[in-house]
Every structure is written in C-alpha cells, then in structure tokens.
C-alpha cells in the first residue's frame, strides 16, 4: 500500500459518500444515472467474490463490503425510495451495449480461464465504461448539479490515482497487471473531457453546463 493507492481508495470512498449524501439530503436522485449505478453494483459483485475464498486484510474486507453494500443502497434509493425523482427519460443509454462486449472480452483476454478470474476480468473491463450512461445523461441534459460534478470528479480521480500507484509499483516492486492498467487508462481517459469542464467551470464557482 502506497500513498497513491490509499489516496485513490479515499477518493473512491468520498465519491460514494458524496453521491449518497446528495440523494439523501435533497431527497432526490435527479441527474443521476440509475444505469451507471446498476453497472457499478455488477462491477463490485463480480469483482469481490474473493471475499468468500481469500482473506487479505481487515482494510481490504471492509472496503469491499462497503463498495458492494453502498452500490445496492444507491440502487434502492434511485429505483425505490426516491423513484419519483429519477430522471428516467434522460437515462436512455443501453446497458447491454456495454455488458455484452465486455463479457466477450473477459472470456477472450484474461490471466486465467477460471470462473472467478473471468468474473474479476469482466468487472475490471466493465468498470472502465460503467460511467458512460452517467456522462451520456449529463451531455443529454447539457448540465449537472455542482454536487454531481464533485461526485464525478472524485470518482474519476480514483482510477487516475490508481494509475500513479501502478507506475510506482512497477518501479519499486516490479509488479504490474496489464489488464488493470489498460482498463484503468481507458476509464480515466473517459473522464478527461469532464475534468476539463470541472476545472474551468465548477472550481470557478459556476455550474457545469455544456455548450448547446
């Protein structure tokens, strides 16, 4: 565990807490893509099945359990508790366009052809594109609430910090995992346009709006 990895985890944790707080405090999930949240729940469920097969550390177990539990709690808030505020007309990205190609890729490009390893690979690939329904929704409505922008920024920074962690681990530990690295770079690149808007608008006190 190095400082970049830890910062990445903290950023990820912060993103989830910002999202839950936003929905809970405003009693509304307006502007949030339920589809991205379903994809994230699928990501954590398929990745953390090793909770049943191996124990690494209390930290590792606690974080995995938190990510799984919070993803289902978010889905509950969007689709049940505050479903009247869910903006389904703007959440029109087709999940199967992401899940099916990613599933095929996980069967073809993986470290080991075993069920758990294929599911882990699937979750790494799926995570890299899981934010697309949310970004699609923002581009469709042309705007995002400031709190939603903070959520997206923290979520984007998490994988960006993991990349720095992988560079560090490559140099100091000789460890690298090409599947995680390539997927992590794809994931971070998808946020670049948003990062630009965040820095040029949100950090200057303006709401995030896209040119028409």
């Amino acid at each position: 565990m190095n400082v970049f990895r830890l910062s990445g985890d903290v950023s990820h944790l912060l993103a989830i807490l910002i999202l839950l707080m936003k929905i809970w405090k405003t009693r509304s999930c307006a502007g949030i893509s339920g589809k991205s949240q379903i994809l994230f729940a699928l990501v954590y469920t398929t990745r953390y099945l090793d909770l049943f097969t191996s124990f690494i550390s209390p930290y590792n177990t606690a974080m995995k359990v938190f990510f799984i539990a919070s993803s289902y709690a978010t889905i509950y808030l969007i689709y049940l508790k505050f479903k009247a505020t869910y903006d389904r007309n703007h959440d029109t990205f087709r999940m199967e366009f992401l899940v099916l190609p990613v599933l095929v890729l996980a069967f073809v490009v993986n470290h080991d052809f075993t069920p758990l390893e294929i599911l882990w690979t699937f979750s790494i690939y799926l995570e890299s594109v899981a934010i697309l329904p949310q970004l699609f929704m923002v581009s469709k409505t042309g705007q995002a609430e400031t709190i939603t922008s903070h959520y997206l920024f923290a979520l984007g920074m998490y994988r960006a910090l993991y990349i720095v962690n992988w560079v560090y681990r490559y140099y100091f530990e000789g460890f690298y995992d090409l599947i995680a690295i390539i997927a992590g770079v794809v994931q971070t690149v998808l946020y670049c346009d948003f990062f630009y808007l965040y820095v040029t608008k949100v950090l200057k006190g303006k709401q995030l709006t896209l040119p028409a």
Binding site: D9, H12, R47, D50, I56, M63, L116, N165, F175
Partner: peptide, 10 residues
C-alpha cells in the same frame, strides 16, 4: 507477484 485470486487492490 500476487496470486490470480489474491486481489489486494480494490
């Protein structure tokens, strides 16, 4: 290196 099923990173 980590074993394939021993995933420390999240």
């Amino acid at each position: 290196e980590l074993e394939p099923l021993d995933k420390d990173e999240l």
